[in-house]
Design a binder for these strands. Structure first.
Ligand SMILES: [Mn+2]
Ligand SMILES: [Mn+2]
Ligand SMILES: [Zn+2]
Ligand SMILES: [Zn+2]
Lengths: 142, 142
DNA sequence: CTCTTATTTTAGAATACTTCTAATTTTAGA
DNA sequence: TCTAAAATTAGAAGTATTCTAAAATAAGAG
């Protein structure tokens, strides 16, 4: 990620390095707010604008992927570039990763059916995570 | 769509009927703003709140699907409930529909790999539509 | 190492989308 | 026709994102 910034002749500021470090360590599909909060602990002066600017650059460079979001919610960033399925729990909002070997085949299948210049595909699932299933059953009892 | 409202004991107001008519005739994956604008021509007094309230009800009833959106953009609504792939043109923003017969198989495949209670999946593609491909080539020449 | 300049950061303003509020109107049914 | 619950409305409030312009700084030249 840092190397990509360097190669593209972006300056390696401490803020950018901290954002990149957080992004490469997290597994939570963070929102800009999550990133701001995390980096703010090391850089109490960091601005939200810097977070938005930096993710815009990283997205442009293909180092992270912007995941679309539901009405009113904040966007989230995907840091795992390996093709996989994101499962969103509609109760707690967490996103879980599921590997799926034949995503490339699905891509080809779609590509064959359109005149689009197809760049990439996303597959998302929606449902209730195991933990929330338990919680819901518990609520029912009460 | 109207029948679903009736069955669920929601009142059939003229505003709701106009919104439903627009939704069942459009092919454009409209935003709340699109809906407001269209219905506003017949109901100059309609409020944005009514549009948001109505799509919330229709979504709850499963009559429309809320499509997530990119940072800053408005959410869009899917009115075609048959499983299909939405291709978004990253240049003009339009969404195109592509049928894909084995979406159910993909659902099963994902369902088999997780403890989620899986409710549904979305497959989206991103790229450049044929029209915009032409436009881009044209720009290059200049 | 110092200087210079283009890049980057910053705080806060501006904008856009969505949700909320409380008063008014309307619907459906008695 | 009357009533009560439901729905609509305008605008306020809330939240996410983008913009702005001044100040700070990174990186390369000398
Ligand atoms: Mn993921
Ligand atoms: Mn569609
Ligand atoms: Zn959950
Ligand atoms: Zn296009």
């Amino acid at each position: 990620m840092l190397q990509a910034l360097r190669d593209a002749r972006f300056r390696l500021t401490p803020q950018r390095m901290a954002i990149c470090r957080y992004l490469s360590e997290t597994r939570v599909h963070p929102t800009p707010g999550d990133i701001y909060q995390a980096v703010h602990e090391q850089f109490p002066t960091i601005s939200r604008a810097t977070v938005y600017n930096t993710v815009a650059v990283l997205k442009e460079l293909g180092e992270i992927i912007e995941l679309p979001s539901a009405a009113g919610d904040s966007v989230r960033y995907e840091t795992d570039l390996a093709p996989h399925v994101n499962l969103t729990c509609t109760r707690c909002g967490r996103i879980f990763d599921i590997p799926l070997e034949n995503i490339d085949d699905i891509f080809e299948m779609i590509d064959a059916r359109t005149d689009f210049y197809l760049e990439n595909i996303h597959i998302e699932g929606y449902g209730v995570c195991p933990e929330c299933q338990k919680a819901l059953k518990q609520e029912e009892v009460e």
